[in-house]
Design a protein around this nucleic acid. Structure first.
Lengths: 205, 205
DNA sequence: CTTAAAAAATGAACGGTGTTCAAAATATTT
DNA sequence: AAATATTTTGAACACCGTTCATTTTTTAAG
């Protein structure tokens, strides 16, 4: 099956090429300003070819969103080298914010754009596996904190959701230009200043 | 100047009619799926007329975003009937979440969409007055809390930003379908469950 | 009233978008 | 070398935001 194998490999290679080209343009020019024609041009293929490998634009956006989660998930898994769950939770938030700020278009795609979720609805897969898995790592860490005696009187899932919302909210307001609008005294550090307030609070719980 | 006055009033009336039609369609069909042609059809005018009263689509979105802030600001100002600042702060979050859930498209426009911010950049106004004023009400309340001896060791602006981010994050994840993806034990109440975890925490500070 | 000037409303046309699909080009098999 | 299967193509479609010469309506002047 050598030829069939090679064909399969070539097919996969072109799929990756399209995703790579799309990611490059997304980062360079923003997702909104990137068109299928741009992507086709970037990799020297025709528009039609893109549609052979992807059902529609949402499919490209979804696959790229998954790639983003692979990356963020990788960083999160490294954090499990930190054995103290409270320390790990604190660092997790920092890593999350850093990732969001350094990969704004990808973050937007992962947590804000409707496209990846619309894609999920159009297929009959389970749910949002990427989000569920990554949120699972937060929950797991919070659970360990609780088991160590922290967060007395709190429930695991709502508390984890609150933590996620807190960091997501900060990143989202920043990326969607709402922090730039409200003129903070220290606009450049407001994200980490805000996060430090949160750290002070949970440090006592 | 009776005629000139009437003309001015008619002009303003048509402006409002366009905004009203746009808002209706946004709520009915979503902002993304609403076109200028839809809006023109809705109010029985031609596309061209819409462009006589608004520079472009961003201008419509910006004006509607301002209307949203007027509404939310109204609710916030009512809250100042509550004299205890900590109670007011807690209630403010609840009102914020309630507003977001009941006016999802408007909330998205106010805090997520790039259009209103792009409009601000295209004009030479000061900044994001709507956001600044509304965030000011949060800051003012947090300040009163601090003056009453709460939030020892915390800084006003970063702490206020943290509070805003927390509620915004929850609303944003919900509206952008990220809570639906991650299957919570109680998906219908996760927003208020998460908010209650936050209330438990600040209740002690 | 009639007519000239001003103001308001129009919608065809332009360049762009995502998407489709018959045709062409290329690769494989016979 | 011919027949078949696969891959690639790009013109064409319906729709988008936007423009602007033209038409319609309103106001002012004779």
């Amino acid at each position: 099956m050598s030829i069939a194998d090679r064909k399969a490999r070539e097919k996969e290679a072109l799929r990756s090429l399209i995703l790579k080209g799309a990611k490059k343009l997304f980062i360079e020019n923003g997702i909104e300003k990137t068109t299928i024609r741009n992507i086709a041009d970037e990799i020297d293929y025709s528009v039609g070819t893109v549609y052979v490998y992807f059902k529609d634009k949402n499919a490209i956006l979804h696959d790229l969103h998954s790639i983003g989660f692979q990356e963020l998930g990788g960083y999160f898994k490294e954090l499990f080298a930190i054995s103290d769950p409270m320390e790990r939770l604190k660092e997790m938030g920092r890593v999350y914010i850093k990732f969001a700020l350094e990969n704004q278009e990808m973050y937007d795609l992962m947590f804000n754009l409707k496209a990846p979720m619309e894609y999920l609805e159009s297929t009959e897969e389970g749910g949002w596996n990427e989000g569920t898995a990554t949120f699972g790592l937060v929950k797991k860490t919070v659970e360990e904190c609780i088991n160590k005696g922290h967060f007395k009187g709190h429930s695991l899932e709502p508390l984890s959701f609150m933590v996620w919302s807190l960091v997501h909210g900060m990143c989202s307001l920043e990326i969607r230009q709402r922090t730039k609008g409200v003129k903070f005294t220290n606009p450049d550090t407001i994200l980490f200043d805000g996060y430090n307030e949160y750290l002070k609070i949970i440090g006592k719980l």
